[in-house]
Design a protein around this nucleic acid. Structure first.
Lengths: 325, 325
DNA sequence: CGCTACATCACGAATACTTGCCATATTAAT
DNA sequence: ATTAATATGGCAAGTATTCGTGATGTAGCG
């Protein structure tokens, strides 16, 4: 493929002149300009971005790390991240981490090897110590890593909203399904608050913890069956949308009526929740905002700026569906 | 950050020696080797990948273009693409195209600017002419572009399977919802075959075409309402999972029983189909295979190899749910 | 012991490609 | 003629790799 040198040769000018035409910088006569432009066209020249990047010491890539891109929540957030980054001239390098814990370290190394300019860390990790206090353009998505700014969702409010929804619906005996505790996510908060609120109203709460890195609907169905086998008397369920859907399916199969017999509140607000029948009452996370804010934050860090706060907290809302009263 | 020069200086050897240690090539005495290694450690040196790439003229990036990463089908396929590429030392650059038709051209330009080594084109396009016969490492995912190899799904069989499912359930009057015809996708075939099979059995088929780039559940609900308003007598529906879900929701809201009154067959086999209640009978696309094959195909092209065929056709299966008899 | 031949090791220069700064050259205006 | 503005060229920087070449060291043979 043609290089800037080939263009220069063809247009009979110096390489630097071609560069000037390319970047519309400095002085170039209209005549030369045309010559260069037509040489470019003839040779079908495209500037080599790698050489450019080497010079500028940037890549315009941002690494986005998620546990599972096929999970609706992460897919949606990633979509908004991509959109915002694209608007700012950056591209997304995608990385799935499920069941590959060492990839997180690799990913941070990508930053140090100048493969990406920044990282949005939306993944769950078991070895956060590895990249503490790196002081590189990294932001965490809904996770707490010491020394790394995070964009989180107000899970306390989320837990409270979920609790209130089930309380209003008259639940007395509920179960909540939470992610693996080993994952240092701020989202644990919602289960703590949920529990507190429920208990303060005299409602019995049982908590079931999922295994690490579980993102598979069949597994969710198994969990639902096990839980419902063990706890036949529950009248309320709080879990992420997908897990909630699995419970609904098992409950309906067992002849329970929703919401009359059992109430269900989801968490996430993915299209899952609106797509199903009955539609799920769920705590909606601000995925668009989350994505945009995360993107803007890394960009700020890359530009050498500082974030206003080390923790940005975004709001959640309850979306009423037909699984609660 | 430290460069190879800094390491060389510190270890008191030539830059090229450091390079040899780095790449374990050529002769390096054990002594020198140790010196270099410890200098690297001390300086926390990481080779600059950009410079490497410039020299080798490769980036180890593959562009993956999808209309909407938040759509479960594309999210799932992307996941498998990423997995396979990762195994082969490549990384995914993600690009969403919905409502940005010029991005496809930009994306192909990325190839020519050496930003990515290859492209998997899973997007719908209105201007395929732009990158016909480019002879670059591009493969199309379930789309037909002249001169570009494609990995497709046997939509003929898919259409037949869907038709048979509705026939077996005793439908007499069905509607199928198809994507925008402007999108040159091989998936049109399923609707043609579906129609043929149904008609050959004396079943009336009506076809509704969606607008271009429609990936939003609310819109699907609107379409479902409109269609059901207009065609009150239909007893069978064939559409992609998400659209099918919208129909189910509207049907249930209107007091119809599924599958007694209306049968529904989906297409895709995303987790949507298994997550909902009633579970959807659907034609399952081989998403894992699709992703892996697409990834392997670009890699073959990048290595200068040739694909066995310009069209690779993957199999589909019917997954029986509770929306047909 | 000394010389040749070969293996081993290290280095400099060239390469990849673009950009930015400095220097030089040309033209026009005062 | 001097200054300013315009136009172009040349070279270095940015970093890692590879190749050719020179410099050692070692072994074998006469």
């Amino acid at each position: 493929m043609a290089s800037i040198r080939d263009v220069a040769r063809k247009a009979e000018v110096a390489v630097s002149t071609v560069s000037r035409v390319l970047n519309s910088s400095g002085y170039v006569s209209e005549d030369t300009r045309r010559k260069v432009l037509s040489a470019m066209e003839e040779l079908d020249y495209m500037p080599n971005e790698m050489a450019r990047n080497l010079f500028h010491n940037r890549t315009n890539f941002i690494g986005v790390m998620v546990p599972d891109i096929s999970h609706p929540f992460f897919a949606m957030v990633t979509k908004f991240i991509e959109e915002e980054l694209y608007k700012n001239g950056y591209k997304v390098v995608l990385c799935n981490t499920v069941e590959k814990s060492n990839r997180e370290k690799e990913f941070v190394d990508m930053l140090r090897r100048r493969i990406v300019d920044g990282i949005i860390m939306g993944a769950h990790s078991l070895e956060i110590e590895k990249y503490r206090n790196l002081n590189l353009p990294i932001v965490a998505l809904d996770r707490i890593i010491e020394g790394i700014p995070n964009i989180c969702v107000d899970h306390c409010k989320g837990g409270r909203l979920a609790a209130q929804a089930l309380l209003h619906s008259g639940c007395h005996n509920v179960v909540q399904i939470m992610g693996c505790r080993k994952v240092h996510s701020y989202s644990e908060q919602r289960h703590i608050v949920f529990s507190e609120v429920m208990k303060s109203h005299g409602v019995q709460v049982r908590t079931v913890e999922l295994a690490w890195n579980l993102f598979n609907f069949q597994e969710y169905l198994n969990v639902a069956k096990q839980v419902l086998d063990k706890m036949q008397d529950i009248d309320g369920i709080f879990a992420t949308d997908q897990v909630a859907m699995a419970f609904i399916r098992v409950l309906l199969e067992r002849g329970k009526r929703i919401p009359q017999d059992v109430k269900v509140v989801g968490y996430d607000g993915t299209s899952f929740a609106e797509g199903c029948s009955p539609s799920l009452t769920t705590v909606v996370q601000p995925m668009a905002d989350l994505g945009k804010t995360a993107a803007d934050s890394v960009l700020t860090l890359i530009k050498g700026g500082r974030l206003e706060s080390d923790q940005i907290l975004l709001d959640v809302e309850l979306k009423q569906g037909n699984t609660t009263l």
